[in-house]
Design a protein around this nucleic acid. Structure first.
Lengths: 254, 254
DNA sequence: ATGGACGTTGCAGAGAGTGCAACCGACCTG
DNA sequence: CAGGTCGGTTGCACTCTCTGCAACGTCCAT
């Protein structure tokens, strides 16, 4: 809608790939160097990009700090956190909280496994959308049309032999998740890692977030992990209650 | 430098404070509603802001994902990580890695304590710049003029009785850190938490990052923590060597 | 020296962004 | 249910801002 801002913002994902110099930025934007320079300068003033010692640009600290604030302000995160911790204390495995937002699924909270073998993931990191249990859980709740459109648009990388192979399979899986009210990922992302996920719903019944418990095969088998499902669902249910205001929470004097 | 982009970027920190509606954004920017609308639309297209169900805007998922990528691409982080993990295995306490960048100090990596009592901090979070050991370590290396200018500009919140109270005290402290080559925070941020930090230097000798070990009083006393100093410094030294290319690291075929 | 690569600056022209005013729809209120 | 208000949205004419160009400066390698 706004050309200048559009161009400036296009620089960011470009720099996210790695540092680039003025010429490279100008080329990839398809604008004159002087134009790119002015845009970069403005981004720089706001701390969104940083000029490293070799004069090349990379993403800046303010961007990271902003993202941090953005996450801390998500109230679902605040409400869910203590419950995630408690669940982690009970089961010992890694617990994740994720949200869906306009074609992205992001982990927004994580409590680390107490076992030495841990799963790699990071808060803020986009989730493997076609296979992760939380992603399935979140997408399963989209309106039919949106779900189909998204499924068609996605890539289906074969992380493992059990990864979701294509759109029809994905849609079928989402349908199942929708009906049963929980989701799994059994080695679809990493051969040896299984997850079970449950939905967190707002007052209107829509899924606002999803949480999951993940554990590697070497610690518990998939079957053993599934026995935790009732506990996971109950936790999600508790969080839903608190989030939607059904459960009275302690008042905070302003 | 570029008015439009400048305005658009100014919206982000504003939304970081919490969700806002169109009118509020327009007011705080000092522009007409229609202008604010167009800016927000552009930001929205890039996923930098998100329109929640009550029509208000908040920061979007793409911003968080971008920041994530930005951090993963910091090569100091990549190099340091295994060493931080190893140190954590040896001492058990929380290990942090932080960088300074244009008036911000950020944690860019963290390995959690293995003790149940943990320190609150988060990757990407701006550090308490006037008291944290890593912050002192990083600022101590700034050129004299810049250090003074920054010290004057900062606020000196009294987190505890031992917090750095003002600019002169801070500068004196930085001077000491500079000379001794390590830094501490003994209850200056949180009454019961102590940290020791050491610098990581690039090939030119400049400090590029700082690392620290933090532990609460209830686990080890400040004196006990200080006995770990040689180990911390040695680790920092090893990372410096690898980062500056003095230590040959395994080649990666392109 | 000399050429090239890269970043930077000043300028004039034009295209993009701006504010205005009117519109729309939702929501209250009398 | 008419009338008011409030918030978001749209079309338009004006003009201010951004753009690309060309020239310049600097550094490096030849």
């Amino acid at each position: 809608m706004s050309q200048t801002v559009d161009r400036a913002l296009s620089i960011l994902p470009l720099l996210a790939e790695g540092p680039a110099d003025l010429g490279q930025v100008a080329d990839r934007l398809g604008v004159h160097k002087s134009t790119a320079l002015r845009l970069l300068r403005t981004l720089h003033e706001h701390g969104m990009v940083y000029r490293q010692s070799d004069q090349r640009y990379r993403l800046g600290a303010r961007l990271i700090a902003l993202a941090q604030e953005a996450m801390e302000n998500l109230d679902i995160r605040e409400i869910a956190h203590p419950h995630l911790v408690r669940l982690n204390e009970q089961v010992g495995h890694t617990v994740h909280l994720a949200v869906y937002e306009e074609e992205d699924v992001l982990y927004i909270d994580k409590v680390e496994s107490r076992y030495p073998v841990r799963m790699y993931s990071r808060i803020g990191k986009p989730v493997a959308i076609t296979v992760a249990a939380v992603a399935k859980q979140l997408l399963a709740d989209l309106p039919e049309a949106e779900r189909r459109a998204l499924a068609d648009k996605l890539d289906y990388p074969l992380y493992t032999a059990r990864s979701t192979p294509n759109a029809p399979a994905f849609l079928k899986e989402l349908e199942r998740v929708r009906e049963q009210g929980w989701a799994t990922d059994l080695g679809g992302h990493e051969e040896s890692i299984n997850c079970v996920a449950a939905p967190i719903r707002g007052a209107d019944g829509r899924v606002v977030a999803a949480m999951s418990v993940s554990a590697p095969n070497v610690v518990v088998t998939a079957d053993e992990l599934l026995t935790l499902l009732p506990l996971v669902r109950r936790t999600a249910e508790t969080i839903s209650g608190e989030y939607s205001g059904r459960t009275p929470v302690k008042e905070v004097t302003p």
